[in-house]
Computed example of a mutant assay.
Amino acid sequence: MHPKNRLDALTDGIFAVGMTILVLDLRIPDDTAVGPDEMSLLRALWALSPKFLPYLLSFYVLGASWLSLIKARSRGEMVGEGYAKWSLVYLLFVTLIPFSTVLMGRFTSHIAATVIYAANIGVVALTAFLLMSLLPDPVRDAHWLDRRVSLLVLLASCLLTMALSFVIPGQALWALALNLGAGLVVRVYRRFAPAG
């Protein structure tokens, strides 16, 4: 058995560092010629625009994942060996998000970059879903359902992104915008799901 609060502290630290590292790739390269006129600076900033979408998506995914983690509560203070080990696997893939974000930002139109990025986020969603299943004595409130459905929507949008990358590699990333509709999916599910 392991104290859950120690895993939570490690998780908070890794999310804080991961979210901070994301921004490091948003910089104008040193070899970029920026003259004294404002237009050259604006052109250099505009050249960074392909990196902003992966940055914003990654920040959103990490932020939403962290918020979901702190809301998924357990009545117990200890977790089993399986939960602890899968937590480390989960955190391994969280720490890879800055790498896959940089890769996506630099090689937006490449299939491999899109697949690696979407797969990274998808594995984070999948392991988070598994962790919810391993959480000892969870509080199964409304947030519990919201989180599980949101993780499934995230996983589905990652699979769609990977499939679309072979057809429209430069635009496939927009499939991740489906996550903005996760709340609607939850409301529809609640309305039509059997009670109990």
Rank of each mutant, 00 (worst) to 15 (best):
A113L: 02
A182R: 00
S165N: 06
L48Q: 05
H2G: 12
I21Y: 11
F166E: 09
Y83W: 11
S109T: 11
W86T: 10
R147P: 04
A193I: 03
Y90Q: 07
G80C: 08
I111F: 06
R147I: 14
S133A: 15
E81D: 14
S150I: 07
T101Y: 02
D31M: 00
L7H: 05
R6S: 13
L145K: 04
R190M: 09
L88V: 12
A119G: 06
A182I: 02
V124C: 11
R43W: 05
S150L: 07
F15T: 10
T20V: 10
A128Y: 13
T127S: 14
A156R: 03
A113G: 04
A33R: 08
Y83E: 07
L178A: 14
I28W: 12
L135N: 08
T101R: 01
A125T: 01
L42A: 09
L145M: 11
L135G: 06
Y83G: 07
Y83A: 05
S133M: 14
D8T: 15
V23Q: 10
C158G: 03
S87Q: 10
F192R: 03
A128Q: 13
G170P: 05
S49P: 00
R140T: 13
S40D: 12
K4A: 15
A72N: 10
D12C: 08
L130S: 10
L155P: 07
A112Y: 10
L22N: 07
G170K: 01
P136N: 06
G80F: 09
G76C: 12
G122W: 04
P138L: 05
Y117N: 03
W144E: 08
D31G: 00
A118W: 01
L26E: 12
F107N: 14
R43F: 09
A64L: 09
A175T: 07
R191Q: 04
E77Y: 04
A193R: 08
P194L: 00
L92D: 03
P98N: 04
R140M: 14
G181Y: 05
R27N: 14
L152K: 07
D8C: 07
M39Q: 13
A175R: 02
L145S: 13
V61L: 12
H2K: 12
L69M: 11
R43I: 10
D141F: 05
L88D: 02
L24N: 09
R6E: 15
R187A: 12
L7F: 14
S40T: 15
E81M: 04
S165W: 05
M1T: 13
L164T: 07
V94S: 02
L126E: 08
R148F: 11
T114M: 05
V102K: 03
L53C: 01
T161E: 11
L154V: 10
L154A: 15
S87M: 12
F52W: 08
L151F: 13
G105K: 00
V61W: 06
R190F: 11
A195H: 00
F15P: 04
P138D: 11
T108M: 08
P169G: 10
A9C: 06
F59E: 00
V17D: 14
R75S: 11
L130D: 08
L180I: 08
L57K: 01
Y117F: 13
F93C: 00
V124H: 02
P194D: 02
S65W: 00
V139Y: 06
L145D: 14
L160I: 15
F166C: 06
F129T: 13
D141L: 03
L22G: 10
R147H: 14
T95S: 15
I28M: 09
G76Y: 06
L176T: 09
D12N: 07
L67H: 13
A9T: 15
